[in-house]
């Protein structure tokens, strides 16, 4: 009997194979097409310098988007990440500037700043999570609220202006963004590590399976002995942690934070997650896709800076179109599946 079902298997599988594959490689294909377009517009697009810039720049949104993949997979949403990044950057700068007198401008101060960033990220994520689960408020509203709170806190800390890192600490901290290891800048390494950890966590651990189950059907998760509240809260904590990592590599870039830091990062992160094939209503998450999504978003901006064929005023139009096309490519198998 087992044999018989096996032969049935192959028939059904073959009928489905192309669409399934398309879904997986859709984002990769979109990125490839973008790169080809970039190269045709200007061969300098594939220069080592530009590719390094692209990867480094993708790191912020990419790292945050890895966290967002967990939140979204478990059926939540976090709109506060951009403001959270700005707030953490601001507090980090204040703490490091304040520590100069006692701790000097060396590595210890920078480590103190980074430690505080991680604590703040975890705390901010936990607040989002606890309000959503224990407070029983929709994630959209909770994080919309904290988004406003964090953003105005930065404005307040900076007195409406810009918080700047002490010049000497900047010297100590600067290599974190600008220096490289084995040819890749440190932010890219952080990005790679976060991506690998995220992938393992989502695809190879019980926690990842629980996230997927909760996003797919919360009641089933509850009846399957899953502590739904704890898992959901943890997804927000992971998100907060990712924001902290992104901030730690962001601050040394310009050594400043202001109310305009991280504006719209939340939407870019969510867009990266969705372009990568994660389902917005939860239950299905792909870290690999998210990485590609972040790269696609950065590449679009990069390509638009590489050409003067398109009016500057239409940059938003191009970005919007490419995002929609990328998602359409990725989902086109739905249509194929239905028409059968």
């Amino acid at each position: 009997m087992t044999m018989m079902t096996a032969s049935d298997d192959t028939a059904t599988k073959q009928a489905k194979r192309p669409s399934v594959d398309f879904k997986t490689i859709g984002p990769a294909l979109a990125l490839l097409i973008l790169c080809v377009i970039g190269f045709m517009l200007n061969p300098a697009f594939v220069s080592e310098g530009n590719l390094t810039n692209l990867l480094t720049r993708s790191a912020f949104i990419g790292i945050i988007a890895v966290g967002a993949t967990f939140v979204i997979t478990a059926g939540g949403i976090d709109l506060s990440v951009g403001s959270m990044a700005a707030a953490i950057a601001g507090v980090m700068i204040i703490i490091m500037n304040g520590a100069v007198e006692t701790m000097g401008t060396g590595l210890a101060t920078v480590l103190l700043g980074c430690g505080c960033a991680l604590v703040l990220g975890i705390g901010a994520g936990w607040i989002n999570g606890a309000l959503t689960t224990k407070g029983k408020i929709e994630a959209f509203i909770v994080t919309l609220g904290t988004m406003g709170i964090y953003r105005s806190l930065v404005t307040y800390f900076a007195d409406g202006g810009t918080l700047s890192l002490n010049f000497d600490i900047r010297g100590t901290y600067r290599p974190v963004y600008y220096d490289s290891f084995l040819g890749l800048p440190y932010p890219v390494w952080v990005f790679i590590c976060v991506a690998i950890c995220g992938w393992l966590l989502l695809n190879r651990t019980a926690f990842g399976r629980y996230c997927t189950a909760i996003g797919s059907n919360e009641a089933v998760a509850k009846y399957s002995a899953i502590n739904v509240d704890r898992v959901k809260t943890l997804t927000y904590v992971i998100q907060g942690l990712c924001v902290a990592f992104a901030t730690i590599i962001y601050v040394p870039r310009l050594g400043s934070a202001s109310a305009s830091t991280g504006v719209l990062w939340e939407l870019e992160a969510i867009a990266a997650v969705i372009i990568g094939g994660t389902v917005l209503k939860g239950g299905y998450g792909r870290i690999g896709g998210t990485i590609l999504g972040a790269l696609i978003l950065t590449t679009i901006g990069n390509i638009l800076n590489f050409t003067d064929l398109i009016s500057n005023y239409l940059n938003g139009t191009m970005q919007g179109l490419i995002i929609i096309v990328a998602v359409f490519l990725q989902r086109s198998d739905w249509k194929l599946g239905k028409s059968k």
């Binding site: 399976r209 059907n217 509850k222 009846y223 399957s224 239950g283």
Partner: peptide, 17 residues
């Protein structure tokens, strides 16, 4: 509604509990 994840395959459903 409470027993199985209908949009998932058999394997993740089987071991979830």
């Amino acid at each position: 509604e409470k027993g199985l994840l209908l949009d998932k395959q058999m394997q993740p459903n089987l071991t979830l509990f």
